[in-house]
Nucleic acid binder design. Sequence first.
DNA 1: TACGAGTCAATAGG
DNA 2: CCTATTGACTCGTA
Length: 433
Amino acid sequence: MDETRMRERAPLTVIVAPSHASPPRLSPDLLPDGDAAFHPLAAVNGRLTPPGLEPASYATLTPLLPLPPISTVSDKFAYHAGGTFTVIQHQQSYASLSPNAYNEPLSPQSAYSRRSVSPGSYERRSPTPPLPSPGLDLNAALLAREEQAQQQVQVHDTEEINTKELAQRISGELKRYSIPQAIFAQRVLCRSQGTLSDLLRNPKPWSKLKSGRETFRRMWKWLQEPEFQRMSALRLADTPQQTIKGDNVNNMQQSYCAPRDYPGAPPPPQGSGLYPGPPPHWDAPVYEPAGDMSCFPLSQRAIRNFVPINVYFIIAGCKRKEDIASDTMPSPKKPRLVFTDLQRRTLQAIFKETKRPSKEMQVTIARQLGLEPTTVGNFFMNARRRSMDKWKDDDAPSTELDQQCESHDLDHVPSLDSADSEEDHDDPDDHLL
DNA sequence: TACGAGTCAATAGG
DNA sequence: CCTATTGACTCGTA
């Protein structure tokens, strides 16, 4: 079984002492590569914090500004985003987000006309419901645009999204238009580039998402937008990553996708705004179609340091920098910890054996590797989360399957004894090593 | 308090 | 300049 497989490849054997009195020991002779044996309390990487001297936490060292809600992004926007999470549902969506369709060229113009893509494509889809797909009628689309002010459709939380396809679709669109992840992540999702990258590469099935659904909804909504608005969103709502730790879901309330009701906001552009020509390079000056979108051209650089006022569609409801804590001091940054090869290999090896080492064991491991117990805890926490493959079946992500995986992932309670039952798991942890 | 989820954001790799 | 990786932070739950 897996247990066997893992043991065969595990370069390290973890010996867990039965008693807390005698902490678990790692057998030095089995250390990866057989290099450097463990020396209790040795600072393997020279970064060991003296015992008893707890390194200041980020929180301590870097007073971070309360995170601006996704709204964050617009932290610097003078408007206050108070709107509800609504979005104008345009009709030029994709008939399908099947992987196949994803490579279809989607010129600015075609965005409006390519509605009826073989409806049949839905069939080939997995049990997972297809991504929500607005009407496909062109006229409807145009009408929608003309009446967008009123046609704001509330996106229901119940709407299911095929995250995998969505991710592929988004990836495709970003590539197609050479839209950097950082730009899309920041302006449309109010998220960091790294987060976007991770979401696109490892999308969790909708059924397993919690608050994280919000981010996918934004992607989805963006995809639903007409070319013009999509581009506008990318160019306008700027989010000079205010870097505030903790920007989590709670900050997403008013993010993108919600036409804000800010005073003085210009009326949304009416159907006249097809992108004039090929999508501009995000770094190059962009020219808005004649109309309400003023304050252009803007270069990316300019955008980064500029707070547009008339943002029509996507307004990252980020708080204004000033509101956040203008008095915040450029906190001394704690250098990012990077495990030494030995530390990483050892931790991974142990993880293979024990997904949930006991607190005691974690402390011991920490000592052995010259790491903080918290660091070790974080490692296992992250490892557990990242090792479990959300999609067992790439082609047929189904809710049923998801549920299975779910229960599969959450059936353990931390304890030394549980280590032996780990073989019950079919942990796809191969990539960890 | 411990965990998990969602992320940030530094930084490794190209 | 970009994307991928990943240690750690914040917040919600149990």
